[in-house]
Design a protein around this nucleic acid. Structure first.
Lengths: 393, 393
DNA sequence: TCAATAAGTTCAATGGATAAACAAAAGATC
DNA sequence: GATCTTTTGTTTATCCATTGAACTTATTGA
């Protein structure tokens, strides 16, 4: 937004404008793009030529159309264009995904290995190997990688704290790029909930929503005015430590009555009378028991849903977002959480009468984070195609 | 952000860039602006010429400078350029202010009249008369007016609810522009806390903060990444109905334990053992008693400060803002609220250890809202000078 | 008095957009 | 089936804000 604007920026902006239009209403003709964007057909033609050369869009057979006139050549996002690699480190698994320019998931693997007692360097070596395998196993040009971590991440790939991994001030981007198997891609690192929110934004576009991600802790990603909001230092989204009951039980963070004490995985498990064992097992049991109608489990989920609703209502009152999306493990539990969250929103949100807040489970399910990470790379290319197309211009 | 970019937009953007630079580091020379922005001296000269012609900037005597070379002509924002008219309707007063392009307050009046039992049309007629007097009494070209209202405001000047005025779905912009005395300016309407936040942003620039405005209710304005955040429907900032205690006392809004029940004017007064009479009187007494060390009053303020801190901590956890600003009547009470707000933030904000959150009273004091409203008009001209300079180009 | 230095202006060139004319490929009409 | 109509996409001359380099202006310092 800052800095001077030269002719070049003009081209960059309009290139992105045309690409955005192709993405949202493919297949479209050059003439339709021109009419919709307000550019002339001549300009669109010239921009499309650049996009074709960079393999960002492709031409398809003209769709048969009624009426007279020369048939239009359809333009679509190129499925063979630059793709994004998503990587995820979580407490009990590593995952990788590749998303192509059209947003299609072209690859997705999950390695279930508990990372809790491992050194960061060992984990990162595994991630590098996984990345290499994934990039090698897919027939696409991968433009960049994005890594999701369950913790607070600084701008330059430094993980300040990842409580559930036991990490503290760990440089992630550096060692990864220097790792033996690393496929030589630019990497950036981001918070798990932020990338989940970006995944949701790509899968079910909506201008503003609160994405609440249940993992061992509770995190949030905020999409405001169609863009992910990161906060002054990149540490936004710590909804897990929003106060639900000021004099409630003491939390790991030192405060009292945090959301995590009601809707964190440990809290739900304990309330449900389940041991705090390996999560995937325990989560499966929780779902089974809830489905069977176990009253203790139902009560535990009701308490969690109510706490989530109270915290979410505060957010909606303050930020006037359209929807609350349940992600991570909450996606699997959405069926039981939904009504309690909705009830609290209805009663606590001042504007709920005019415009009710939508509560929904995340569209991509539990894989939202990795897919979102891969999609974020693609998103960057799509919003700033000039950086990619510049070389061939 | 949308739409095509033509050569003209390029000029618009760079015009704003130059003006911004003149505003932030006045007095500056054309050459300094060129060096700082990255534009060439030739371009800057041409843009400055346009700005001079539109009376947005003015030339001043060259500042004596050491060393050889032709002396620079200083550029400053023109104090005689377009100014903004701010208007405020509040429960117990009407106010008006004029701010010139440099941000200086050139006029400021407050009419203390209780508006609670009056018809909107009568109030608006008074506002129109006040506007006419103000514009007539000041020797400046007023570009536009902005009206602050304590309630939820829709995009086109429709007040959805102003609970403490007793207004509901009142069109404000229309009747005002059609009023007998109205000085024929474009008007826009906004929420009181939003405009207070803009006033704070102009007076003490900082990238992101939460502005909490205490009036009869409690509202908030959010500045994120240097711009006011309005929410999906323009209804952001309802911090007064954020839950502080889920099972606390029932609030006017139907929910339980809202912040307003602890930090709203009525709640504080009742807790302090004061009757809920005319506010200015009661507020003055509250301050007097607090200064005298009255224990009941001190306890009431402590409870309010704690509740404010709890609500603010949730916001900071979620949005990672740098500062919490106490505005409206909270500005006058800041001395007593400060330590309680800060304590709750320190204990409840996850990242408080790395980067403590600043708590401060609003820089403009209780007049922040009207001045902010007037300043918002000027701000719009400064960020989009092309609209103003376009005519003379 | 004159070189050195810096500020600001002038002017041809540049790069991207526009507008209007043109070519291409279909349906519509007789 | 020949011609008209309609729409797509390209070509070409023109426009316009920025650039870069040369130039003018105003001051310091030798």
């Amino acid at each position: 937004m800052d800095g001077p604007v030269r002719q070049r920026s003009l081209w960059q902006h309009n290139l992105a404008l045309v690409l955005r239009h192709v993405a949202t209403s493919a297949p479209v003709s050059r003439a339709e793009v021109a009419a919709a964007t307000g550019l002339t057909r001549a300009t669109v033609s010239s921009l499309v030529e650049d996009l074709l050369r960079a393999d960002l869009v492709a031409e398809v057979e003209p769709a048969p159309r009624a009426g007279a006139g020369r048939p239009a050549t359809g333009l679509v996002l190129s499925a063979g264009g630059p793709a994004g690699l998503g990587l995820e480190i979580n407490v009990d698994y590593l995952a990788a995904a590749v998303v192509d320019l059209t947003g299609a998931v072209r690859h997705h693997v999950v390695h279930r290995v508990d990372q809790r007692d491992r050194q960061p360097s060992a984990v990162l070596a595994d991630v590098a190997r996984l990345a290499a395998e994934t990039v090698g196993g897919v027939d696409l040009t991968v433009a960049a990688a994005r890594l999701a971590v369950p913790g607070l991440v600084d701008g330059d790939g430094l993980v300040r704290v990842a409580p559930n991994l036991g990490w503290r001030d760990v440089d992630v981007a550096g060692p990864l790029a220097a790792a033996e198997h690393w496929p030589g891609l630019p990497v950036s690192v981001d918070n798990e909930a932020n990338l989940g929110a970006l995944g949701e934004l790509a899968a079910a576009p909506s201008a503003s929503f609160l994405y609440i991600s249940g993992e061992v802790g509770v995190g949030a990603g905020l999409v405001l005015d169609g863009t992910l909001f990161r906060g002054a230092h990149g540490w936004s989204g710590e909804i897990g430590h929003v106060t639900v009951t000021p004099d409630g039980p003491v939390c790991r963070c030192g405060a009292r009555g945090c959301l995590e004490r009601y809707a964190g995985q440990e809290a739900i498990m304990r309330a449900a009378g389940l041991d705090g064992g390996r999560e995937p097992v325990a989560l499966g049991r929780l779902v089974d028991l809830a489905e069977a109608g176990d009253p203790t489990v139902r009560d535990a989920l009701r308490a969690a849903g109510t706490a989530l609703g109270i915290a979410a209502a505060g957010v909606v009152n303050l930020l006037d977002v359209d929807a609350v999306v349940l992600g991570g493990t909450f996606a699997a539990l959405a069926g039981w959480l939904h009504s309690d969250v909705e009830r609290e929103l209805r009663s606590r949100v001042l504007t709920a009468r005019w415009s009710p807040v939508e509560v929904r489970a995340c569209a991509l399910g539990p894989a939202a984070t990795v897919i979102g990470a891969a999609g974020a790379v693609v998103r960057d290319i799509r919003t700033a195609p000039a950086a990619w197309a510049g070389a061939v211009h």
